[in-house]
Design a binder for these strands. Structure first.
Length: 381
DNA sequence: AACCGTTCCAACCGCACGCCC
DNA sequence: AGGGCGTGCGGTTGGAACGGT
């Protein structure tokens, strides 16, 4: 199909946005909605191309954006989803409410990719770089099965992400929230695009409101109404998976956000916890899965756990398990050539191949569990 | 203090795709 | 059917911030 240049570049400003520009853009969108992005700059009195305005809005000024450090849970969600979806940042972003694809992409490239690499896990394939262990007997076949399943799930998620985007476009009931701009401004709005209205900071300078919740503490998922489409019997639980992400509750107030989270990663890894993780999944987690008809039989007990209860409990079990798995090799520890295989099981530290295999299996287990739980947990389902 | 290398992220660029005429 | 338009998406980059020497 034809492609037109994004805009007439002559005379248009590029580079960082100034507070004044932000203000103009916000004021216009709050009053009129964005409408046609191409037409917006002229109407809003901005010397920018529409694309730049759209980006500034979607990645920064939009009120329903959570900024600040990623929580441990968010990190893990990103890693798990990346294992399934690859660099489909927008699809991943649909699972992380209030995070933009750009932010997730940046975070992946600057933090998570390196961390996985450090662990000896290929950030592209999410397999151990030393893949010899997987190349034998039925394991490669299992990997192929998983890969096939991931592709299938990926396609499904993509379609569903589209649906959610469409439904979001139709939805216009946003609650009050705050967002920050680069200049440190805080903007406080109550409506957007038919629903948003500026909350009367009449002086033209959007005010700093000290008592606003910090960006990382404003995430409450009741704010985002489930899309009208694709309701599930578990609709009310749709947010379960993310409920603890960035809430003002324990994790945030306890400072368990990224930097501290990294410490967490370091502190959690040991074989006992790995075992607890496995047991925890067996005992505590139940899934309603769109994949439940697919049997994935991995050697060594790789079986999808599922009950018929329809109840979903995704909590710290999987988080900690995944954390343990990754953190055995994270942080300050220098990795030898055998990378994750050296002592992934923490306390055991025997570097046996079977441990590596077990850990890799658990790594993928955790990912599979995420997939299993996603359809009924994520905001879009 | 000055310099230099690294990290991080906001913003840009170009392609792809869907919709409409 | 095919072309134009609008927008979404993912890759890349520029420069500020930071840390080390």
């Amino acid at each position: 199909m034809g492609r037109s240049p994004c805009c007439d570049k002559v005379g248009l400003k590029k580079g960082p946005w100034t507070p004044e520009e932000d203000q103009k853009l916000l004021a216009y969108i709050e009053e009129h909605g964005h409408g046609s992005w191409r037409a917006l700059p002229v109407k809003a009195g901005l010397q920018r191309c529409g694309k730049s305005c759209r980006l500034r809005w979607t990645n920064y000024l939009r009120p329903d954006i959570k900024r600040g450090k990623f929580s441990l849970q968010e990190e893990q969600t990103i890693i798990q989803l990346h294992a399934l979806l690859g660099n489909r940042w927008s699809a991943i972003a649909t699972h992380l409410p209030k995070r933009t694809d750009n932010e997730i992409k940046n975070y992946w490239n600057t933090h998570l990719k390196k961390r996985l690499a450090k662990l000896g896990i290929d950030p592209v394939t999410h397999k151990p770089k030393n893949d010899a262990l997987l190349s034998t007997d039925g394991q490669s076949k299992n990997a192929a099965n998983l890969s096939h399943m991931a592709q299938w799930e990926s396609a499904r998620l993509e379609a569903e992400a589209r649906l959610v985007r469409e439904s979001k476009l139709r939805s216009h009931s946003y609650p009050p929230s705050a967002s920050t701009s680069t200049s440190g401004q805080l903007v406080n709005k109550t409506a957007w695009n038919g629903g948003w209205k500026k909350s009367s900071e009449g002086n033209g300078v959007l005010s700093t409101v000290n008592d606003l919740e910090s960006p990382t503490s404003t995430l409450t998922f009741s704010e985002t109404a489930p899309p009208p489409v694709m309701s599930t019997p578990l609709g009310a639980n749709a947010m379960t998976m993310f409920e603890f992400v960035g809430t003002s509750g324990s994790s945030h107030e306890a400072g368990i956000i990224k930097e501290e989270g990294e410490q967490d990663w370091k502190g959690l890894g040991n074989s006992t916890q790995l075992q607890e993780y496995k047991e925890g999944i067996d005992n505590s987690m139940s899934f309603t899965s769109t994949l439940h008809d697919m049997t994935l039989s991995m050697e060594g007990g790789w079986t999808p756990e599922r009950t018929n209860s329809g109840q979903v409990h995704v909590g710290n079990v999987i988080e900690e398990g995944f954390t343990s798995l990754l953190l055995n090799d994270s942080g300050d520890r220098s990795l030898s050539d055998n990378g994750c295989e050296s002592d992934n099981s923490g306390g055991t530290a025997n570097g046996s191949g079977s441990d590596s295999y077990e850990d890799n299996k658990n790594y993928w287990n955790s990912i599979l569990h995420l997939v299993n739980s996603s359809p009924s947990h994520s905001p879009m389902f």
